[in-house]
């Protein structure tokens, strides 16, 4: 087990190198001069441009630039963005908000998705099942920005139950609505996945045996059907955690949440190379860790899986 975990951590090294190289190369190949983005409309004097090129090593060839960047990362210096703020500080500032949002979305989709999926699976073909199936299909089919604006308008503006946008503090109660919107599509997938998985397990021989042993229906459902059905669902949820951390650009935009997604989006617009590379690398690491967590959870849920 320890060996497995340490091996998985070692695997992070090539993933990290490959990902940073790729992202760095993409940003490097962006058309236009990076200094133009910093100087803006008015432009800078040639002396300032030279100084900037010096500061960000823009005159060096690609490999040297990349290696200098790596050296910085390894000494925990992510450098500064084009406005001169340390990137590490920016991440430390926006990440807690995004993490809060992602975890809330995950909790929402897990609880509601599993409960609804369980009920739908146990009542296959009944009204509840059909309704939920159609609704989940609608949620999957309609783009997230439509759902987001719609819910913002209805709940935030019309009903006034919550602020339509999130303040700088991003309190938990403010984040509820964005979290629901963010988790909505995954909720529909979790629901459907749980339902399918339950349907498969209901017919399993060991479920019949458990019933024949004289167990109550409730116990058969919770102990023998639900736990076995959770195996594929947990895989999905774990992978989704990684996605939610970085993929909240649209939702963060709608609700004006000052999180990682929005920051990354702005950095891309401004051609702020160092910020883009650092944030993407950071997200990749989170994604890898989330996957490792899934694999460990997997072994806990299914004892047939053993890591050596």
């Amino acid at each position: 087990m320890t060996w497995y975990v340490s091996r998985r951590f070692l695997q992070l090294i090539p993933v990290f190198l490959g990902a940073t190289l790729l992202v760095y190369f993409l940003v490097f190949s962006l058309p236009g001069d990076a200094t133009a983005a910093i100087c803006g409309e008015r432009g800078c004097t040639p002396a300032v441009v030279t100084a900037l090129r010096e500061q960000y090593n823009l005159d060096e060839p690609f490999w040297i630039q990349y290696l200098l960047y790596l050296k910085g990362v390894l000494t925990f210096d992510l450098g500064t963005n084009f406005s001169g703020r340390p990137i590490a500080v920016i991440i430390a500032e926006v990440f807690p908000t995004t993490a809060k949002l992602a975890v809330m979305a995950l909790v929402f989709e897990a609880i509601f998705g599993i409960v609804f999926g369980l009920i739908a699976g146990l009542r296959k073909g009944k009204l509840f099942d059909s309704t939920v199936l159609v609704l989940s299909l609608v949620v999957i089919a309609v783009p997230i920005f439509v759902l987001g604006f719609l819910m913002q308008f209805l709940i935030g503006v019309k009903l006034g139950w919550t602020n339509p946008t999130v303040s700088g503090d991003a309190t938990v109660s403010e984040l509820i609505l964005p979290a629901v919107v963010l988790g909505l599509v995954s909720f529909a997938y979790v629901l459907r996945l749980t339902r399918t998985s339950i349907l498969e397990n209901v017919k399993a021989d060991y479920v019949r045996t458990a019933t024949a042993k004289g167990l109550s229906r409730k116990r058969v459902v919770v102990v023998h059907i639900l736990r076995n059905s959770m195996i594929p669902v947990v895989t999905f949820l774990g992978a989704d955690l990684g996605t939610l951390m970085g993929g909240a650009i649209v939702t963060e935009g709608i609700f004006n949440v000052n999180g990682v997604g929005l920051t990354l989006y702005r950095a891309v617009l401004n051609g702020d190379g160092p910020t883009v590379v650092s944030i993407v690398t950071f997200l990749i690491l989170i994604f890898c860790l989330a996957n490792l967590l899934v694999d460990l959870l997997y072994a806990w849920l299914d004892p047939r899986i053993r890591y050596a």
Partner: peptide
């Protein structure tokens, strides 16, 4: 093979 629940002791 299929009548014991694989995830419980």
């Amino acid at each position: 093979m299929s009548n014991l629940n694989p995830v419980w002791k």
